[in-house]
Nucleic acid binder design. Structure first.
Length: 851
RNA sequence: GCCGGAGUGGCGGAAUUGGCAGACGCGCGGGAUUCAAAAUCCCGUCCUGGCAACAGGGUGAGGGUUCGAGUCCCUCCUCCGGCACCA
């Protein structure tokens, strides 16, 4: 196999061109080149895992590489960088088990994955390679954190400002002033009930807990109050939501982000507590149902619970609160099927009708959303309905559904209606449609100081600290008096210290606490202090890496402003849909913050986003070691070559779709590349075939060529890589039948194939007599006139059924087509003497005769 | 439960967005080449009936709009993804 001198020796060819590109810096991106339009195309950088590359990675990378190579040929100055999201739990778990420094593991994994990535021939500018674990990189991650720490959010201006400019209310003590400032920083510490994972020995962000267990590893997660670093992402909720309309992203991803942010517009309403000075505020999206509020529910953690509970109910309430506190997240969701709760013994006064309503506690009300208390309207809220039914609380209908049948059921308390309708049992407001009632009652409450318009978000502040070793250290010190200070920027990077072992202490104390020499510091003024021992979560480094690529070796700033101005935003971002809310929301948040600081000039970092779908094993199942269906890219490349691998991954189906692997499919595209080779190269000599000539192509050949150029270019623009490949296959199959293969046809074919199979294309280009790489050759221009067929075959239907086909000149007008069709003998036969009622002519498509 | 997305040959998938369903590839069948095999090339391949020309049916199921529906509308089924007491 492949013994002849001129055979398609992909192994040798691919190595040769990879070395050529690297030696010649073929894909070097030139900063601030004003002579060309720029195009920034970014892949989601991978975690350097010990498993190495799997076949899912090259899918997105090949797609982006095709676009990058295509755009270069279209005359763009393309920035196409690559790097490593290198902090992460696997290297640390390995360190805990074996004592190997995670850095050593990480570097070895990067070396291996870099080799694998390079073996696919992607046109990255490798001079810009970065790793988030490099101190020269995380120096700037820490720098951004310091900026967050030293900023607050100005609600009126809806933007971040330096903490020094925070207006502090009059009359506060020094201690209160300090607290006030701490409470406004965008990076702050708080005692929060966190997702504590005993198995991993760390807390997790809400986004990292899936179905009550940890996203990584599937370990159980419990609720535990701990002092943690938080980022005030909630301040950006409105902007994160608004600016989604400005990006070209899949609607599904935008929707996921919208739902995650979860904006609700409603009102906060004040209820007096009978016999107490205190009030309870509740948040509701349905202030129009206030007259139907028959009880209240507070979260068990609510501060007022202890105060208002009557002696008789003390024990029951205490037991319930303790039981709730012990529940893990998983237990809570499991128990969600059946509502639980306890009466406090206290009553509140409904502000609209002065009714006395009982106050309950239940864990179906969350302390972390709204005010931690609700007014319950069982007739018009499913959860309240369920609770009221179980505990036999009154149900008062106040909204009449439009459907009379429903209305009757609601009236009898048999149906819970949550839609819009007409107000009933609501005093002077009766008869109002829901939307108007909402506005009226909100104004009514506001006039009396009993309520106000309010907006709530599901989005919570970002839990930003982890009790791990392998992450960015916080540039923060703790003073003996409890104050927290950021270290100065010129002390960055704050490097990770060496530690004896990497195991968490299990108490919540991070491994860094073991590095006492590092932890204990003396400040310039002589004060002893302790360094923060938590580290940042993995998402930190990926929040801004697209900016470091712009200026990756700059030792003075994270990125130079003129480079940011030239390259940003990212024009095309390709990666997996699993990052829909995590990475993409966090990165947008940091970007908006940097925008407020004037460090970036665009509101959004990623203009267009495309998700590649997952590649399944040959059995149609998700690839996994235990199933034994994992495809090894190294093996595929060894057997068929990188070009075949690239081409196959693009030929499998639509980029975004989930699709199963097929080794025979790889063979299929490999055959196509072989065929393309043999189209031009003599397998014996390696020289161009005698059939390759400087001859004129005939009309039919030119037409197919120009149609193919048009199709392939158009398909690349719309990510239809599978159909682009199919079009090239048709052209190659056609040319294979010709005895004379004009160079003027083969050369454009090689050029349009080159983004897909770059090694083969470069080799063919050279063997056709070119000295330069084709990487910057102009993309062939198609001639619309040549692509246009002279004659067109039309289907002729009678009553929608095809009877025959006719051939007409491309420019034939409707009347002549009509005459042609009606004169067709099959048509005459089918009509059987009947007169056509109507003749529909779709030029270039078909004729339909209705009889 | 709620919100998205998708159901097309034996398989992966095409179909100008309302206009010839099944491009291209895989697989399979037949043939050429070969001592033989691999590789390669040619022909066939949605289903049913027929030697064939041809006829009929066909895009998850059922209904509707239309001269015309894989594509649009309604109802239902299945699979995948997301959220899961967010008031």
């Amino acid at each position: 196999m492949g013994t002849a001198a001129g055979a398609y020796d992909f192994g040798q060819i691919e190595k040769k061109w990879q070395q050529f590109w690297e030696a010649n810096r073929t894909f070097k991106a030139t900063d601030c080149d004003g002579s060309k339009p720029k195009y920034y195309i970014l892949d989601m950088f991978p975690y350097p895992s010990g498993q190495g590359l799997h076949v899912g990675h090259p899918e997105g990378y090949t797609a982006s590489d095709i676009v990058a190579r295509y755009k270069r040929m279209k005359g763009f100055n393309v920035l196409h960088p690559f790097g490593w999201d290198a902090f992460g739990l696997p290297a640390e778990q390995h360190a805990i088990n074996t004592g190997t420094h995670p850095e050593a593991t990480t570097n070895a994994n990067i070396t291996n994955m870099r080799r694998q990535t390079k073996s696919l021939g992607f046109s990255y500018d490798w001079d810009r390679e970065i790793a988030t674990t490099d101190p020269e990189y995380y120096r700037w991650t820490q720098w951004i954190f310091l900026k967050l720490f030293n900023s607050y959010f100005d609600d009126a201006q809806q933007k971040a400002r330096p903490i020094k400019e925070l207006p502090i209310p009059e009359g506060l003590s020094e201690e209160e002033k300090r607290r006030y400032v701490e409470d406004h920083r965008l990076a702050y510490q708080a005692d929060v009930p966190v997702n504590w994972c005993p198995e991993l020995g760390t807390v997790l962000a809400n986004e990292e807990v899936v179905g009550g267990v940890s996203e990584r590893g599937g370990h159980s997660v419990i609720r535990k109050p701990m002092r943690q670093w938080m980022l005030r992402i909630t301040k950006y909720a409105e902007r994160l939501l608004d600016d989604l309309s400005a990006v070209d992203w899949p609607e599904s991803i935008k929707k996921l982000q919208m739902d995650w942010i979860g904006k609700s517009v409603g009102a906060e309403v004040c209820f007096r507590i009978d016999g107490f000075d205190q009030d309870i505020w509740v948040f509701t999206t349905r202030p129009d149902t206030l007259f139907g509020a028959t009880y209240m529910v507070m979260a068990p953690e609510h501060a007022l619970v202890d105060i208002i509970t009557t002696d008789g109910q003390k024990q029951a309430v205490k037991d319930y609160c303790e039981a709730t506190a012990r529940k893990s997240d998983l237990d809570r969701t499991d128990l969600a099927k059946d509502k639980t709760g306890v009466f406090t013994g206290a009553y509140a006064i409904n502000p609209v009708n002065d009714e006395r309503i009982p106050i309950w506690i239940s864990d179906y009300v969350l302390i972390s959303y709204g005010t931690g208390a609700i007014m319950a309207v069982p007739a018009h809220d499913d959860r309240d309905f369920e609770f009221a039914t179980k505990f036999e609380l009154p149900i008062v209908p106040v909204v009449e559904p439009p459907d009379p049948l429903d209305a009757e059921k609601v009236e009898r308390g048999e149906l819970c209606f949550t839609g819009n309708g007409t107000a009933i049992n609501s005093g002077a407001f009766d008869g109002l449609p829901t939307p108007q009632f909402k506005e009226k009652i909100t104004a009514w409450l506001a006039e009396r100081g009993l309520g106000r318009k309010a907006i709530n978000y599901k989005l919570r502040d970002w839990l930003f600290s982890r009790q791990r070793y392998w992450g960015e250290p916080f540039p923060i010190v703790h003073l003996p008096d409890g104050r927290v200070k950021g270290i100065s920027e010129d002390e960055l990077p704050l490097r990770l210290p060496q530690v004896r072992d990497y195991a968490p202490l299990g108490t919540g104390e991070p491994p860094l606490a073991k590095a006492t020499d590092w932890v204990n510091v003396t400040l310039p003024d002589g004060t002893p202090a302790r360094r923060e021992t938590n580290t940042m979560p993995q998402w930190a480094g990926s929040c801004w890496y697209y900016l470091r690529y712009l200026d990756p070796r700059n030792a003075d700033v994270g990125w130079a402003p003129e480079k940011e101005d030239y390259w940003m935003p990212v024009d095309l971002y390709i990666g997996g849909a699993e990052h829909a809310v995590l990475h993409l929301l966090y990165a947008r948040f940091w970007h908006k913050f940097l925008y407020d600081l004037g460090k970036v000039h665009t509101k959004e970092p990623f203009k267009k986003l495309v998700n590649q779908g997952m590649i399944l094993g040959e059995d149609g199942q998700k690839m996994s070691k235990s199933r034994g269906n994992v495809v090894n890219p190294d093996q595929v490349i060894a057997d068929y070559g990188a070009d075949s691998m690239r081409l196959y991954e693009m030929f499998m189906g639509p980029l975004e779709a989930m699709k199963p692997w097929s080794m025979q499919g790889v063979q299929g595209v490999h055959r196509f590349l072989q065929k393309t080779w043999r189209l031009m190269v003599d397998e014996e000599s390696g020289q161009p075939l005698a059939a390759v000539q400087d001859a004129r192509a005939d009309e039919e050949t030119l037409r197919l060529l120009h149609q193919t150029i048009r199709k392939v270019g158009g398909d690349i623009e719309t990510f239809g890589f599978n159909t682009a490949i199919s079009a090239m296959m048709i052209l190659v199959n056609y040319l294979g039948r010709l005895d004379v293969r004009p160079r003027s046809v083969l050369e454009p074919l090689v050029l349009i194939l080159s983004p897909f199979a770059p090694h083969l294309a470069e080799e063919l280009w050279q063997r056709l007599g070119h000295r330069e790489s084709l990487a910057h050759e102009p993309w062939p221009v198609y001639d619309a006139a040549l692509a246009q067929a002279r004659e067109i075959e039309l289907a002729v239907q009678v009553n929608g059924k095809i009877k025959d086909r006719i051939v007409v000149p491309a420019e034939a007008d409707e009347d002549s087509i009509k005459a042609n069709a009606l004169g067709n003998e099959k048509v005459v036969e089918a009509l059987n003497g009947k007169t056509p009622k109507k003749v529909i002519v779709i030029r270039s498509r078909l004729v339909n005769i209705v009889a």
